[in-house]
């Protein structure tokens, strides 16, 4: 399956992948509206990590594992792997117990404290290429066929 990979040397630490992700998962799909006016602003599903004021940075996100630890740990069944291999989180079913946060070795599931729901990458089902990848100005994120690790 296609996955998102991260090229550390190309990452400039601009966080545009996070902005792209938030925008894509907002109601308006408009960054200004999403950030200024939407009551429930989404939180980013990718995480840019930085060290030493940005000298080291990279964007991390869900690996859509073959045998997802998050799925095994999920007590409500909200996390399922679909026939394409995408690891999906059903927000309705999620009870916000954070078992997936405890289990994901990639640190790729976030806590949305406002909605008390877990938050994870869905590979942007409405797009051909995930928003984070398109948003990256230096092609530090690539979306292509590949294995989990």
């Amino acid at each position: 399956m296609k996955r998102i990979y991260s090229i550390e040397d190309a990452c400039i630490g601009c966080h545009l992948c996070e902005i792209g992700c938030i925008t894509e998962h907002s109601l308006s799909k408009d960054p200004v509206k999403a950030f200024m006016h939407e009551k429930e602003r989404p939180i980013s599903r990718c995480t840019v990590e930085e060290l030493n004021g940005g000298i080291t940075s990279l964007s991390t996100t869900c690996r859509h594992c073959d045998e997802p630890d998050c799925l095994q740990a999920c007590i409500s069944g909200a996390i399922q792997k679909d026939s394409e291999g995408v690891v999906r989180l059903d927000r309705e079913q999620c009870v916000g117990c954070w078992s997936c946060v405890m289990a994901c070795p990639y640190g790729a599931i976030q806590r949305n404290l406002a909605s008390k729901k877990a938050n994870k990458c869905d590979l942007c089902p409405d797009r051909e290429t995930p928003a984070c990848v398109d948003a990256c100005p230096n092609r530090a994120l690539v979306y292509r066929e590949g294995s989990q690790k």
């Binding site: 090229i7 990590e49 940075s57 292509r144």
Partner: peptide, 16 residues
């Protein structure tokens, strides 16, 4: 996070 670990670990987990 992973930036506190080695480059090798980060590359193994996230690079293409």
């Amino acid at each position: 996070g992973f930036v506190n670990l080695s480059r090798e670990i980060r590359d193994t987990l996230f690079s293409p």
